[in-house]
């Protein structure tokens, strides 16, 4: 069993990410701290294959042939493994990159996609599970990794009208990956 991740992005400017970035800067006071905000559709696939290379090949096939994850007219995609995330802020050109994964608090399972893959598209033997979420990638100006993490958390969790934006913790879960 291998777990592989599929990150799907819009080829055109992502207005949701742009709107979020604008609100965070103009309304929440992170004008200086938030340098960039990107949003990806996130899928984690448990695949019944022995090696990572085989998992990448299968993930590529799923992305390009099933039309479930990627519309090639408007999406680009990337395949990565969970080990490629840093588990916290990573220093990039003097800034800090923080990846925040947002999922449904009641579970990230994607039963409709699983069902389509296993029951209708012939991947019953190869696909064990599919989870989904939204991956927010922030580039932050901060003096330390701890400060970057703190800013990311403040931006993420909505606790009041003027605090946080990306997650309502009453139905969503989040983690820095």
């Amino acid at each position: 069993m291998q777990t592989i991740e599929l990150l799907v992005n819009l080829k055109i400017p992502d207005v949701t990410a742009l709107t979020a970035a604008s609100a965070i800067r103009r309304r929440l006071g992170y004008e200086e701290a938030l340098k960039e905000l990107r949003r990806s559709d996130y899928y984690s696939l448990d695949l019944n294959v022995g090696k990572l290379d085989a998992a990448r090949t299968l993930a590529q096939e799923l992305a390009e042939k099933t039309n479930l994850f990627v519309n090639p007219n408007k999406h680009s995609y990337a395949i990565c493994s969970p080990e490629e995330h840093n588990g916290g802020p990573a220093s990039v050109d003097g800034l800090w990159r923080v990846e925040v994964l947002v999922t449904d608090a009641e579970g990230a399972q994607a039963p409709e996609i699983e069902q389509a893959l296993t029951e209708r598209l012939g991947y019953a033997d190869q696909v064990a599970a599919v989870r989904q979420g939204i991956l927010w990638t922030m580039l932050l100006a901060a003096d330390s990794a701890d400060e970057a993490r703190s800013i990311a958390e403040s931006i993420t969790v909505t606790t009041a009208r003027d605090e946080g934006l990306l997650v309502n913790p009453h139905f969503q879960a989040w983690e820095i990956i």
């Binding site: 207005v15 949701t16 709107t19 609100a23 309304r27 009208r161 003027d162 934006l165």
Partner: peptide
Amino acid sequence: SYQDRIRSGVIATKEPIVATMF
């Protein structure tokens, strides 16, 4: 409002008009 971006209603809440209403 705001095309329901991120979550329904959440962007609108950040507008100054909502603070005044509050």
